[in-house]
């Protein structure tokens, strides 16, 4: 592919992804912002806020807020690895909490899609404050590619499955 096409394609992806991230109600409620998007990679920021606290004794952010950030970052990385604008859905996500987040500090989630197959995007990532070499959490996740855009609500008794 000529380099100009690659850059054009990336730019289209960035715009789609930004629009999509801003459109997602829970990402919006958390205050998640897209920081940077590259081929198969995404950086998202979760600003510290009092309502994200999990332990009121020390002000440390709830694990659920960090896993939500990493789910969003992972989905963005998977999307940024695709050739066309196909929706993705989380199949599984494992998160290791390496150390408590520092109260008052924003958290950045960086995720990369390191392998893409026809059906599945394999993603790993880290959550950190300033220095990625000093991470708060580590994530491994898989995303299904090409999930339905609209719910098949006909009462067939069948549920959509990954």
């Amino acid at each position: 592919m000529p380099e100009r096409d690659v850059e054009e394609r990336l730019e289209m992806w960035r715009q789609l992804n930004r629009r999509f991230s801003e459109f997602v109600p829970f990402n919006k409620a958390l205050g998640i912002k897209v920081v940077r998007l590259e081929q198969g990679e995404a950086w998202l920021r979760l600003p510290y806020a009092d309502h994200l606290v999990g332990n009121p004794e020390n002000g440390v952010m709830h694990g659920g807020a960090i896993s939500s950030l990493m789910d969003a970052a992972g989905g963005s990385a998977a999307f940024m690895s695709l050739d066309d604008a196909t929706p993705v859905a989380t199949l599984d996500l494992r998160i290791d909490y390496l150390k408590p987040a520092t109260p008052g500090c924003d958290v950045v989630g960086h995720a990369s899609c390191y392998k893409l197959t026809r059906n599945v995007a394999f993603v790993r990532g880290l959550a950190f404050h300033e220095d990625e070499a000093d991470p708060i959490a580590s994530v491994a996740a898989t995303f299904m590619i090409g999930t339905p855009l609209h719910r098949r609500d006909a009462p067939t008794g069948e549920e959509e499955q990954p």
Partner: peptide
Amino acid sequence: LHGGTLGS
């Protein structure tokens, strides 16, 4: 629903 809410 957002996957993060189910995880939470």
